[in-house]
Design a protein around this nucleic acid. Structure first.
Length: 578
RNA sequence: GCCGAUGUAGCUCAACUGGUAGAGCAAUGCUUUCGUAAAGCAUAGGUUGUCGGUUCGAGACCGACCAUCGGCUCCA
């Protein structure tokens, strides 16, 4: 028996239990999902966490009754009659009928009948009784549309054995400890304060050090690949945003304009328009192309209050942005180059797992997008071509495109497995049209340029958040804000400790001398909590032999070493990681 | 924005059914100079998220707002 089938059957059992406990319930839908299942209910009252054990108990009781799942095929008419008091089910039946179905299938277990195409377990005795748990209650719009009523969703997790469930719950619990918000607080990296504003990030000194390292590495790699670094203002004349279509298609994500001497200025939600203006500054030749402008550009977007999530989703963030202007026949090469850069950077920062989406238009709602069909098809084809050529696994998602073009999105995964969009590559024929962006081709004729929008990390905020969760805060040596602590055993070793500190700081290492009047144990404990890669203890022996006693993070004491030898060792460690 | 939960010292948490806020860590001062995950003593620290209401009396009850958390919708 497939676990998905069991999960789906559990969703039905849960619905059955809810029906028994709340007879007037209207039912939405209840599918199996990753690790479990959910079901949406329209209930006479709000559920509280205390309801979950009651429902769970009822479910177990029902499972023990060895109830059979019976499938039946019904005519549309008959189905409508059976579900006459179930408005959501009626809506589904109506839709099935409209799509040409003559009959629908239903499943009955005990006294609970559900519209469902199955499959299900034959009997509840096939369901392991101790391998599931109801985990949370949440609101969810009927059919995922915010204009529809909100139903109450109960989530559950389910596995084949009690042990698998216990393991899963343990892993989840452990993962929650790697939450970037927790790590950010513990390691004093950043904060978000009510006094400053929701979604506005304060980077503390140590967070800023990490960001600086990331940015430095990013700049170096971009310079190598022929990018030009630019700086652009944070506000711009609103006419620019009107022309691009932002005020029409992107309005709900923008802060309202500010009026200065009869002109409205817009806080930028994107960097592209400024880069467009740099491109437009003079006539460009085909010999100049591709032109790659890049900028760590800070943008502000109005995000609905309910979606903010630490630094993974703030309202102000810095994109590692770039706009590439190229000839049409350079698209695949450029997209390909960007993909290579992305995978190189991600692996340099230790990311092994990511998902790739090809985000295209919603074919049913073309009014959400700028530009005509032909242009869109061309852009979508170009992106898909490169993905296929690189043999990368991707999922095509309709309706996920930006208003000006389709994109390749790379999603990084957080501690508890939630995907967050980071890197993105977007082919855009629309802005070049809107802003009349050209170059002079080999024949001396004006030709339309192609624009590629891209970030390879996503944003500094989101990237750091994912980075912290990936490493559980224990960043590799090259990224650690504090790499080494020198801990003198007693007051008489302070002087030597000082010289040791200097030997490392002279070589560019981030090293702190911990010479306060506290015990060695205390400082070791503090160092481990602060996730310092190396703690160097120096006492009488080390002073005599010009060495250090090395303690490696998580590993413990790895022995005494000459200062020179340790220096060499960490240099190698840093080179290797890069 | 929507549904639900939460908000007490810098951090982690206490305070019985309403009776006037307490502990550990951190901070500061003194003592201790210490060999691999917490030395000792003392001091200071709070309009209990904000505003309003109920009450003789509110951290606790009610309302509005703000923020956070889990989802939904939306997104880098």
């Amino acid at each position: 028996m497939k676990i998905e089938t069991t999960r789906h059957s559990l969703a039905h059992i849960m619905a059955y239990a809810v029906q028994e406990l709340f007879p007037r319930t209207k039912f939405g839908i209840g599918p199996a999902i990753e690790n479990g299942f959910y079901y949406d209910f329209d209930l006479p009252r709000s559920l509280t966490p205390e309801d979950l054990p009651k429902i769970e108990e009822k479910m177990k009781k029902l499972i023990k009754e060895n109830l059979t799942f019976r499938k039946r095929l019904l005519s549309i008419k008959k189905a409508k009659e059976i579900f006459k008091n179930q408005s959501y089910k009626l809506e589904l039946i109506k839709e099935l009928a409209e799509n040409g179905s003559r009959e629908v299938s239903i499943y009955q277990v005990g006294n609970f009948i559900d519209l469902c195409k199955g499959p299900h377990v034959r009997s509840t005795k096939e369901i392991p009784i101790n391998a599931f748990k109801l985990t949370k209650i949440a609101g969810a719009y009927w059919r995922g549309n915010e204009k529809n009523p909100m139903l109450q969703r109960i989530y559950g997790v389910a596995f084949k054995t009690k042990k698998e469930l216990a393991d899963f719950l343990k892993i989840q619990e452990k993962a929650e400890k790697r939450d970037h918000r927790k790590i950010g607080k513990e390691l004093d990296l950043f904060s978000i304060k009510e006094e400053v504003g929701a979604g506005l990030v304060l980077w503390h000194p140590k967070g800023a050090i990490i960001r600086n390292i990331i940015e430095g590495f990013w700049r170096k790699e971009h310079r190598k690949r022929g990018y030009w670094y630019v700086y652009t203002p944070h506000i711009a004349n609103i006419k620019l945003w009107e022309k691009s279509g932002h005020t029409k298609f992107y309005k709900e994500n923008m802060y309202p304009p500010m009026r200065i001497e009869e002109t409205d200025y817009q806080l930028k939600p994107m960097n592209c328009l400024a880069h467009v203006q740099i491109y437009k500054n003079k006539i460009r030749s085909y010999r100049d192309l591709p032109i790659r402008y890049c900028e760590l550009g800070t943008v502000y977007r109005y995000e609905k209050s309910g979606v903010l999530h630490g630094i993974l989703r703030p309202r102000g963030f810095t994109q590692d942005d770039s706009h590439i202007f190229c000839q049409p026949n350079q698209i695949t090469e450029e997209v390909s180059g960007v993909l290579d850069l992305t995978t190189f950077l991600l692996s340099s920062f230790g990311f092994k797992k990511y998902e790739i989406d090809l985000s295209v238009r919603d074919p049913k709602n073309k009014s959400k997008y700028l530009g005509d069909d032909k242009i869109w098809k061309k852009a979508e084809k170009a992106l898909e071509y490169v993905l296929k050529k690189k043999k990368l696994k991707y999922i095509k998602v309709e309706g996920e495109a930006v208003f000006y073009g389709p994109k390749i999105d790379i999603k990084l995964v957080d501690a508890i497995g939630r995907p967050w969009q980071g890197p993105t590559i977007q082919v855009d024929f629309n802005f070049p049209e809107k802003f009349d962006l050209n170059f002079i081709n080999q024949k001396g004729k004006k030709q339309r340029v192609v624009m590629i929008h891209r970030t390879v990390l996503g944003s500094m905020e989101r990237f750091l958040g994912c980075l912290l969760e990936n490493y559980g805060g224990a960043l590799p040596l090259w990224l650690s804000p504090e790499q080494i602590w020198v801990i003198p055993v007693g007051a008489r070793h302070k002087k030597y400790a000082q010289t040791v500190r200097e030997q490392f700081s002279d070589k560019g290492f981030r090293v702190e001398l911990k010479d306060t009047a506290e015990t060695v144990s205390k400082k070791i404990r503090e160092g481990e909590i602060q996730k310092i890669p190396y703690l160097l203890v120096v006492g009488d022996k080390e002073v005599k032999t010009k060495s250090v006693r090395v303690r490696k993070r998580k590993k413990g004491d790895i022995g005494e070493m000459k200062v020179e030898k340790f220096l060499k060792k960490i240099k190698i460690e840093i080179e290797k990681k890069k």
